[in-house]
Design a protein around this nucleic acid. Structure first.
Lengths: 146, 146
DNA sequence: GTATGTGCAAAGGCTTTGCACACGT
DNA sequence: ACGTGTGCAAAGCCTTTGCACATAC
């Protein structure tokens, strides 16, 4: 299954997101496309201000509006980064996903995936709720801080 | 194991928290005690502003300072309530804990516990991190909003 | 050509801080 | 008595909103 595009996994998400944005009746506008392409290049979560800082030519309000729209369409999702901060990262169109481990001391974030955990999560049923997604954050201390 | 105090499970946490606060060299002051007693009575997470609203005689800054200290001592922890809001709830001294399911539409929060999930979580090992805690949030739509 | 999208600047909401006074030990 | 704790008000941050101009379709 490995293909030549494996080294640029973001291309898939970028074009997928662009398609979905258009399917939703939104325009393929310059500023929003810059946000999409930037997020497509990231492997892990960035805060709204991180995104804004990386795109000096895009207004901050536009960054926030783009985040809102992308989240609405389920193209990105928010993750708790500790310390009153939220990050955003792309949602893999294949359904593949990971969770995060955050260092309490320095705020360092690393992704991780665990199949047993996913199984356990998908077993959960809750009366009165239709569950659509889940977020798991592990907290601890990283080597540098320990 | 059921005892007469089961109907007031919060008493344990309240006195435990008070003891820990004093052990940390902090004083048993009026305002902070009010925050502790209030949190002890809650069964689920409250935001800083919820806490402030419930304690009109305690200054807002004091509420935030108390939250900071209680979190530092691991007597409460923060939970993601969706929509840019964080809630705080007591940490059970017996180690007992639950997670949350949040309605995307109305923000309703319900606690849940799942033993298989806890097992899976405790199996996780991650090089370069000493894991101390975890947070799990399920998201979905509740009956009223569906 | 028209409705959507954008950037700026202002407003808003939550959280933190500075400081003088109050209180616990 | 001393140092911690408190409340108020001001400042700080991040996020959202209003509005005139620009751009995609």
């Amino acid at each position: 299954m490995a293909t030549a595009t494996d080294s640029h996994p973001s291309i898939d998400w970028t074009s997928y997101a662009t398609t979905q944005i258009q399917a939703a009746g939104l325009r393929r506008s310059g500023a929003r496309q810059k946000v999409i392409q930037m997020l497509g290049r990231q492997s892990c979560a960035l805060t709204a201000l991180d995104i804004d800082a990386k795109l000096p030519k895009v207004g901050r309000a536009t960054v926030y509006r783009a985040i809102e729209q992308l989240e609405e369409l389920n193209l990105i999702h928010r993750v708790d980064l500790g310390g009153n901060a939220f990050g955003y990262e792309k949602v893999d169109p294949t359904g593949d996903h990971h969770h995060h481990i955050v260092c309490d001391q320095c705020g360092k974030v690393e992704p991780f995936a665990d199949e047993e955990l996913e199984k356990a999560i998908h077993e959960i049923r809750r009366n009165g709720f239709r569950i659509s997604s889940h977020e798991i954050t592990l907290k601890g201390t990283c080597q540098n801080c320990d």
